[in-house]
Design a protein around this nucleic acid. Structure first.
Length: 476
RNA sequence: CGGGGCGUAGCGCAGCCUGGUAGCGCAUCUGCUUUGGGAGCAGAGGGUCGGUGGUUCGAAUCCACUCGCCCCGACCA
């Protein structure tokens, strides 16, 4: 009768699929590579949207919406961009029963159509900066898919901005990177490394790509957000120009940046355990579940009433629910809400009632504490914040413990096999060394930190001079 | 696209090797007893065995083809 979740140790990727399906976050769709996001998974995405959207708006961005379909020719205007995306495009060739004169691309990202519009809207330096964000779905025909982490269609936000100078675009790209980093830590309770991508890992059409990199429990890295300084590449391809104060015409400098439903997968992989998913309180769709426990009818009425009153009291302060179902046992409810990741459970049974208390149990570690019924409200908030903080601290310790130095190529290879995780190592900067290391170890350079990594050394592979170390890891 | 695995009741599976007319657990429904970590007993309903074709008196089982999905690799947020 117990739902069976494959233990993480036995098969991590089965575990991942099991918890998502069984917690009802998502389900496989009739279309290969696509997924149905069920209410629990979608509520998480909404929580992510809510928080990020507020931060984007605080920093001056506005939401807009651009069309799903993009004329095929638009993709060809930026050479690197089309080369990067060509293999994974979905193309619409027919509409209204007729073959289209020009095929339409289902957007894999919206740079091209957005810059085409920017070209219409931007005339003067007074029109800048343009700071736009859109929440949308995109399609990339991936060869191999995985729930939330990589699906053919996925939901994301894509920010697109245009600026008067390279410095301003660079500042924008880094501002967003910082928003992503703080969101990951403060809300998702997932500490990340930030840095710039190498040339080979960078977005097709970007000058520089920055990313936040998280570590999953199987010691594989996950790119959780990206921010690109696009330079003037798209501005030139789409003739996005503005007139300066002196009356000359210049191309704008632009950025684009995004996070996707992949973040939901990151949450699952970072915090889940063999009992199910486990969500940090700030993002959890349901933060507190109250489970009453009774034997007799007399107990039932008193305890159900106490549970209801408690929920009433907490309602304004947190997302709470009372589970009054009589057809399943308390034990069943404990397991079910743990499976679904609710961070805090309040139990109230005859013994609690007698002592005028609730028994609070943390999803994180099942630690129990007694909470007095009087002033419940005053206790629950701090408890949730404590859980949030403990989850982040646990994540920090995990990241720290799984980040090592690799002084030699041998050490890197051995470390990847034996422990996994991130490795700080020297790299000369050549794409050739990078590729060979990738081919030989399956590890890639996740990012080059922007600071704190200056140190003279020699490249792992060729012994050439290196002036800074980078993060290597196997990744999703 | 290469390698592996799987399609049998809503879900998870057995049966297939060695053909004989479909079974188990969970879920569902009814009744009674239960409820502090996935309750017990009794009864009931539910399946053209992924599809097509073939072999055979007879196919879930053997053969051929086909469709779909999952996992592992090459591409990617």
């Amino acid at each position: 009768m117990a739902k069976v979740i494959t233990p993480r140790q036995e098969d991590y990727s089965r575990w991942y699929t099991d918890v998502i399906i069984q917690s009802q976050m998502a389900d496989y769709s009739p279309v290969k590579g696509c997924m149905v996001i069920r209410p629990l998974g979608y509520a998480l995405w909404e929580a992510i949207q809510r928080e990020l959207d507020a931060r984007f708006k605080e920093t001056g961005h506005e939401n807009a919406y651009f069309p799903l379909f993009i004329p095929e020719s638009f993709l060809h205007k930026e050479a690197e961009h089309v080369a990067g995306f060509a293999p994974e495009l979905a193309v619409v060739t027919h509409g209204g029963g007729k073959e289209l004169e020009e095929a339409l691309i289902v957007r894999p990202t919206s740079e091209t159509i957005i810059y085409a519009m920017f070209a219409k809207w931007i005339r003067s330096y007074r029109d800048l900066p343009v700071l736009i964000n859109q929440w949308a779905n995109v399609v990339r025909w991936e060869m191999r898919t995985r729930l939330f982490l990589r699906t053919t269609e996925f939901l994301w936000q894509e920010g697109h901005t245009a600026h008067v100078s390279e410095a301003e675009a660079e500042e924008e790209a880094l501002t967003i990177l910082e928003i992503y980093r703080r969101f990951a830590e403060e809300h998702m309770a997932i500490p990340v490394y930030t840095g710039v991508k190498t040339e080979s890992e960078r977005f097709a059409g970007a000058l520089r790509t920055y990313s936040i990199e998280a570590l999953m429990q199987d010691k594989k890295a996950l790119q959780a957000g990206t921010s690109h300084n696009l330079g003037q590449n798209f501005a030139k391809a789409f003739e996005v120009k503005y007139q300066t104060k002196d009356g000359t015409w210049e191309h704008v400098w632009s950025t684009s940046w995004g996070v996707s439903t992949r973040l939901v997968g990151a949450l699952v992989m970072a915090h889940g355990d063999d009992n199910g998913v486990s969500f940090p309180p700030r993002l959890a769709p349901l933060q507190v579940v109250i489970v009453p426990i009774w034997k007799t009818d007399e107990e039932k009425s008193r305890i159900a009433e106490a549970a209801r009153l408690a929920a009433e009291e907490l309602k304004g302060a947190c997302r709470v629910k009372v589970d009054l179902r009589d057809e399943v046992s308390p034990g069943w409810k404990f397991n079910e809400w743990e499976l679904k990741g609710v961070p805090l459970r309040l139990e109230i049974g005859p013994r609690d009632l007698e002592k005028n208390q609730f028994t609070a149990v943390r999803r994180l570690d099942r630690r129990k504490t007694a909470v007095p019924r009087d002033g419940l409200l005053a206790h629950v908030g701090p408890l949730l914040e404590e859980i949030q903080a403990d989850m982040l601290e646990k994540g920090r310790a995990f990241l720290r413990e799984n980040t090592r130095d690799a002084k030699s190529y041998d050490e890197l290879k051995r470390g990847l096999e034996e422990t996994g995780g991130f490795f700080r190592a020297h790299w000369c900067g050549s794409a050739d060394c990078e590729k060979r290391i990738k081919d030989e170890t399956k590890a890639t350079i996740r990012c080059i930190p922007l600071e704190g990594n200056r140190e003279d050394g020699t490249c792992l592979r060729c012994n050439g001079a290196s002036r800074r170390w980078v993060y290597f890891a196997r990744s999703y």
